[in-house]
């Protein structure tokens, strides 16, 4: 049942993209022949239309594309002229690394802030809460520019554009992680607060467990729960954010590929990226469900 649902999601995403792109002004044959503004001859356009089947009715093209996708063939990019699978293969690593690190950092910040601000009294709670709300309200493109200005142009601690080494990842990861940490922090802190008042915490204290022990063993676990469940959503959020961050920091990746492909009307490439992202979302959802069971003892008995 799960599998059927996943396949349905992928099919619908591909369909939506396929027809969505056809509504956009711009001729796919022209996209193939050197992009917008090209002065391709009538023969060349006709040749390309025949070669790519663009002279067929849209329904036939759709079925043909679906047939190829079903056999795992993502097709050839109009603009880059190489197989879509190869392009995605070469770009996905950077984006996944960026997203994974951002998620991890956001997690650490959010959890740390949640635990600290719930034990530090009123002031800490107010500071924590303010930080979370402000962080969640910061547009990441603005944050990116500010971070570059401070840490790259003025202080020169980190490079402004991506490098082969790890130092080039610092600013992009922070840009994505800080607003996300704001979101996660709000949920986690609330959850930690609830856990601190929960009966199981009371009984743990009654059993004589140390405060630290209680926090680490029970409260933190409870606080982490919403974070785990939110990770599926965070994945989609990070992919959208990657479009902006990869553009600002000149990082190769799926986000930038997607933006370029839409602007160049590169239908196969856009469909390919959408499918991969949708697949990632489906997998992430399955993974968070599994992780929830792992973290939440109650879920294990279901």
């Amino acid at each position: 049942m799960r599998l059927v649902g996943a396949v349905f999601v992928l099919w619908a995403a591909a369909t939506l993209t396929f027809f969505g792109l056809r509504l956009i002004p711009g001729d796919p044959a022209q996209a193939i022949l050197g992009g917008p503004g090209s002065q391709a001859s009538a023969e060349a356009l006709a040749q390309v239309r025949a070669e790519y089947g663009l002279d067929q009715p849209i329904g036939v093209q759709y079925v043909a594309q679906l047939g190829r996708l079903a056999t795992g063939d993502l097709g050839t990019s109009y603009s880059l002229k190489s197989p879509v699978a190869d392009i995605i293969g070469s770009q996905i690593g950077g984006t996944l690394l960026l997203a994974a690190l951002a998620l991890l950092v956001a997690w650490v910040i959010a959890l740390g802030l949640a635990v600290w601000s719930t034990r530090g009294g009123r002031v800490a709670a107010a500071v924590g809460s303010t930080l979370e709300i402000v962080a969640a309200a910061v547009p990441h493109f603005w944050l990116a520019t500010v971070l570059v200005l401070i840490f790259s142009t003025a202080l020169r601690w980190f490079p402004a554009v991506s490098t082969a080494g790890p130092e080039g990842l610092v600013l992009p990861v922070l840009t994505l992680a800080l607003p996300l940490a704001g979101f996660l922090g709000q949920v986690m802190r609330e959850s930690v607060l609830n856990a601190l008042e929960a009966p199981f915490t009371l009984s743990a204290r009654a059993r004589g467990e140390s405060e630290t022990g209680v926090r680490w063993r029970h409260v933190l676990r409870h606080g982490a729960l919403p974070g785990v469940a939110l990770s599926g959503w965070a994945f989609g959020w990070l992919i959208s954010g990657a479009v902006v961050v990869e553009t600002v920091f000149a990082r190769p990746g799926l986000g930038r590929t997607l933006l370029n492909a839409v602007q160049l009307r590169d239908v196969p490439l856009v469909v390919g990226v959408v499918l991969v992202v949708a697949l990632g979302y489906v997998l992430m959802t399955l993974a968070t469900d599994a992780a929830t069971r792992l973290v939440d003892p109650r879920a294990r008995f279901s």
């Binding site: 959503w233 469900d289 939440d296 109650r298």
Partner: peptide, 28 residues
């Protein structure tokens, strides 16, 4: 999408325990 999308592919009918735990998340 807003964080509601975190709800993921929601399982129908869940036992009370999970309902509560998930509630913390989803209600966010």
């Amino acid at each position: 999408s807003l964080p509601t999308s975190a709800l993921g592919a929601g399982e129908p009918a869940s036992p009370r325990g999970v309902g509560g735990a998930a509630g913390d998340v989803e209600a966010f």
